[in-house]
Design a protein around this nucleic acid. Structure first.
Lengths: 243, 243
DNA sequence: TAGTGGTCTAGACCACTGC
DNA sequence: CAGTGGTCTAGACCACTAT
């Protein structure tokens, strides 16, 4: 048995929701885990079942939890299917659900540029893990990526050889570094290709490219990864629903 | 007094929410209007107050209603502040909240191209209202727009002179044509500028431009307006939060 | 059959708004 | 002050899942 901590002026259902969220952040509850039932929670926290329901509903709306009737409430595993890179549509009528091949070009430790230090909350000129990656679809290069990670947090990656990386990095972060990406912020602009980028993408220098800067965050909203992706503008396609 | 209509297997709170939504679609309740109080609704529909709350909460989550403690529940007026055109950020450190000037270049009735007929549910080769508009910020052209509207629905616009249009069209649709835009779908791609577009935007031919196709819908989800906007790619900037 | 979440009821009390 | 929505309680009954 326990009592809800925190300011009594804050509604119980919010304090309860925060408490559950903290357990997800702390890793006590992990994605895929079953959350205690409404009944258990209402007994443990000494609140009415309705209040528990309200708290859980909040977290479901936030996307942190998932409820399945007859089974229980689960910690949701975030999927990045909606990520911008999925909005590249390519010749051959891809339905957009294909994950591009991914080839690690290099992985090393070096001084991070200032904007990366800022984004990842690192000290100025701190060393960080740098990954350069090329992604292809049907053997055609579609995306080059520059990825930066805190050295301390992601050290285990340095023990892996290039071909031990699969097509997706986030599952590796979770397995090897215990770092779960919960959400991200992406930022899209359009530039002209540098000769290096153009070469990697198989286009002419000065052709337009889409630049996507992404900052990936953990459940505690602390930054985990910063990446910049370059893609061919002529293959880019993005949809938004407003309201 | 009344009883909730519809299939009894559907939860009451959903039937209630649908009923209120229908009244918004039908124009019985209009944006800004006060919705009857929880008490009134629970008496009128003969359901428990808690069920009314649940229905209203659904509609608030959907963005159709707004609740203000101590005052009441209102039909929400959709704002297009989040629309993509706001994501053009321009030299001079605009904070993005500025509405560009807008100049109607032409307004006429002509045969709509096939894709417009499809989007607006018009018959093939139907006549429609066509508006060509230029938008400037600090006297610098930033967007050229091609706008298509059903002739029947938007006939009152044809009686206006070009300078009677303000910087925003949607308030005019609402006032003059009783057409309220509730939501929209936008579609972003990147092309190279035609000579005509380049001239309007003050850039070179074949430079990259952002193309935004937007289909605006009413509360009943029927299409109201189709527009294509061209903007300078070098000034484009877009942000998304994932999850 | 037992346990889960989903719906629904019928209240109590509080905080905020407007008069 | 009366009326609104916001929080909280304490149940009842149902639908779904697992065993």
């Amino acid at each position: 048995m326990s009592t809800l901590s925190g300011d009594n002026r804050i509604p119980r259902y919010i304090r309860l929701a925060d408490s559950i969220k903290q357990q997800v952040i702390a890793g006590v509850l992990r994605p895929g885990n079953l959350v205690p039932s409404e009944n258990e929670l209402s007994l443990f926290y000494e609140v009415a079942p309705g209040t528990v329901r309200q708290a859980l509903k909040e977290l479901v709306n936030e996307g942190l939890l998932q409820r399945v009737q007859g089974k229980g409430t689960y910690v949701r595993r975030p999927d990045f299917d909606r990520s911008l890179f999925r909005f590249f549509k390519f010749l051959g009528g891809s339905d957009g659900t294909v994950v591009p091949d991914s080839k690690i070009l290099s992985i090393s430790v070096k001084s991070a540029p200032r904007h990366v230090c800022g984004s990842l909350s690192l000290k100025k000129n701190a060393k960080a893990i740098y990954i350069n990656r090329l992604r292809k679809l049907e053997n055609c290069p579609v995306l080059v990526e520059q990825i930066w990670l805190s050295e301390a947090r992601f050290k285990p990656l340095l023990t892996l050889s290039k071909n031990e990386f699969g097509p997706l990095l986030y599952p590796i972060y979770e397995k090897k570094c215990n770092a779960i990406v919960a959400c991200a912020n992406e930022d899209l602009t359009i530039e002209t290709a540098s000769s290096k980028t153009a070469e990697a993408l198989g286009i002419e220098r000065n052709q337009a490219v889409v630049v996507i800067d992404r900052l990936a965050l953990g459940f505690d909203e602390r930054p985990l990864e910063w990446r910049r992706s370059y893609g061919r503008a002529d293959q880019f396609h993005y949809q938004v629903d407003i309201r």
